[in-house]
Design a protein around this nucleic acid. Structure first.
Lengths: 195, 195
DNA sequence: GTCTATATGCCGATAGAC
DNA sequence: GTCTATCGGCATATAGAC
């Protein structure tokens, strides 16, 4: 990561993001973030207010980048909707073998704060998944799927299940198996009432 | 929980399980477990060796009870395989609204220790999901599904995706939507080569 | 906006007695 | 098998100077 040109705030956020994602949010202390970013604690607290504030900024950042990546994967795939959907799973299969890949930061964040429904991590994670679901609903509807909202839910659930299992077993083949299931679901929905 | 008749070890384990599940493993200290169980730290360490040892015992315990519950849900449902599979999702919809329900302890445990592939929590969680997958493979094969192993993977992934999303949004309807998808997948597999 | 220095409390784990 | 007492370390957060 080239950070020389970043503002202090952005540099701290970038470092925190790396550490939170690779080590787990609750497993990373403010001290470690400060040390790695080359700032002192009062500076960090000046910009983010609290650790929860820093966590929220981190997850909002991932929310945005992941959403953009998903959209790009679909947009850059030609062919029927089923191919666009399959591309999301193919992207998972392609990205997950990287040593730094450790699952979905939003899902993991929500799991780490299971004790507190009102924690920012929970709210941001839920909103992110709803956002993906809404986007998929639009995409499917545009391509003539009736009851697009139901199928969008099913595919979002399937995709996150795939993420969890690829992570759990360290095996990207779960992404491809799940991608085949996604294809089946899309095609079954199209048969109900063809476009 | 009635614990008067339990051995010290089992009482500590029961208390630790409640706390780990409701508060998150990393968020619960040894002190809290000891206080709640009415023992001192050396006693806990005598029985479990370390916090990781206690965590492993907790997750092994949940592995067993969850697996039994899933099997029971399928066994107690009559009709075609698709109905037995749908029953797993129906069980999720039924159980998840309880205030104490906070998702899958194995998935959450794995997420909490994302930084360490060799942590007992990771191994136990992975083994548990493989166990469910193997059981489903058998169940599907017995009912005439060809390529039962592929379908078992897809259904396991879908089920855990449903668990995560029901948890994330606090909305059991994700279980029913996913159950419908599971039905579709099973029926599509049976059409490939009917029993 | 960034620093030095520190408050305050909880963490996992253990020595040694009985 | 269970206790009292305690170790050393790290957690989040802040007071006050510049």
């Amino acid at each position: 990561m080239i950070m020389a040109q970043l503002s202090t705030r952005d540099r701290v956020l970038a470092v925190a993001g790396d550490l939170f994602y690779s080590q787990g949010i609750r497993n990373v202390g403010i001290d470690a973030v400060c040390k790695e970013a080359g700032v002192t604690k009062p500076t960090l607290y000046h910009h983010f207010g609290s650790k929860d504030g820093l966590v929220a900024a981190y997850l909002e950042d991932r929310n945005e980048s992941i959403f953009v990546n998903l959209k790009n994967a679909a947009d850059q795939t030609d062919g029927p909707v089923s191919a666009k959907i399959a591309a999301l799973f193919e992207r998972l299969a392609k990205v997950s073998p990287r040593p730094s890949w450790k699952g979905c930061p939003l899902l993991r964040g929500a799991a780490e704060f299971a004790n507190d429904v009102d924690h920012p991590a929970r709210k941001i994670s839920s909103a992110h998944k709803k956002r993906v679901e809404s986007w998929l609903t639009e995409l499917l509807a545009e391509h003539g799927v009736t009851a697009a909202n139901v199928l969008a839910r099913q595919l979002t659930v399937l995709l996150d299940g795939a993420v969890m299992h690829v992570f759990l077993h360290g095996d990207p083949s779960y992404a491809r198996s799940s991608g085949m299931a996604a294809r089946t679901l899309v095609e079954a929905a199209l048969k109900e009432k063809p476009a």
